[in-house]
């Protein structure tokens, strides 16, 4: 009996991460209001990305398991923070949100190191994400004008996440790697462990 082909949860995780990050930046640079950010944040960036993260467990990919589940939770928490502030439920001040973002910056820094061992495209995605978080931290502690800078910077981050998603999907549908993600930035003396991204590409 032939083994059934299994999809890669990362395509959904990256899709949700990229799209909600993109929409939030449309808000941060002043193009649109918060409504779509809240609902997409709950469903796509939140629920869908979190489920994709939980599905990563079965693929044996600890990086994707942690990253997608955590950022899925980030989106749900962010949407609920916005809702709470609107309805006077545990209202968060600007600095409260600042500390919330600092915690996520520290967490992202750990995953950023991991991303350096995976591929150039993912390393770039996480470098942009880490820089975006640092800019947003500064925006909440005395430099509000940096919100717009972070907005454009994180749009690039979202686009990079979509690039990695497109790499996986196109490798599948075209039968060859049309959008290469590049070699890891950090290569130790031992060969890097095969990652699910590569495994998926190899399977395809």
């Amino acid at each position: 009996m032939a083994e059934q082909k299994i999809g890669n949860p990362a395509v959904v995780g990256l899709a949700g991460f990229g799209l909600t990050t993109m929409v939030l930046q449309f808000h941060n640079v002043g193009w649109m209001g918060l409504g779509p950010v809240i609902w997409l944040g709950l469903i796509f960036g939140g629920l869908a990305q979190m489920i994709a993260g939980l599905q990563e467990m079965k693929t044996g990919n600890n990086f994707g398991y942690c990253a997608f589940t955590a950022y899925g939770c980030f989106w749900i928490a962010l949407a609920l923070l916005l809702v709470g502030n609107h309805y006077n439920l545990y209202v968060s001040s600007r600095t409260d949100i600042g500390w919330f973002l600092i915690a996520w910056t520290l967490f992202t820094a750990i995953l950023w190191v991991g991303s350096l061992r995976i591929s150039s495209a993912l390393a770039l995605t996480f470098t942009l994400l880490l820089a975006g978080f640092v800019l947003l931290d500064l925006a909440h502690f005395g430099y509000p004008e940096l919100t717009v800078v972070a907005g454009y910077e994180l749009m690039a981050c979202a686009a990079m996440a979509w690039y990695v998603m497109a790499h996986l999907i196109f490798a599948d549908v075209f039968g060859r790697d049309v959008l290469p993600v590049g070699r890891p930035w950090l290569r130790g003396p031992s060969a890097p462990a095969p990652t699910p991204l590569k495994v998926a590409a190899a399977k395809a």
């Binding site: 502030n85 609107h86 309805y87 006077n88 209202v91 968060s92 001040s93 600007r94």
Partner: peptide, 8 residues
């Protein structure tokens, strides 16, 4: 408003 946020 600092205390109440958007709910204020």
């Amino acid at each position: 408003l600092g205390e109440k946020g958007a709910s204020g």
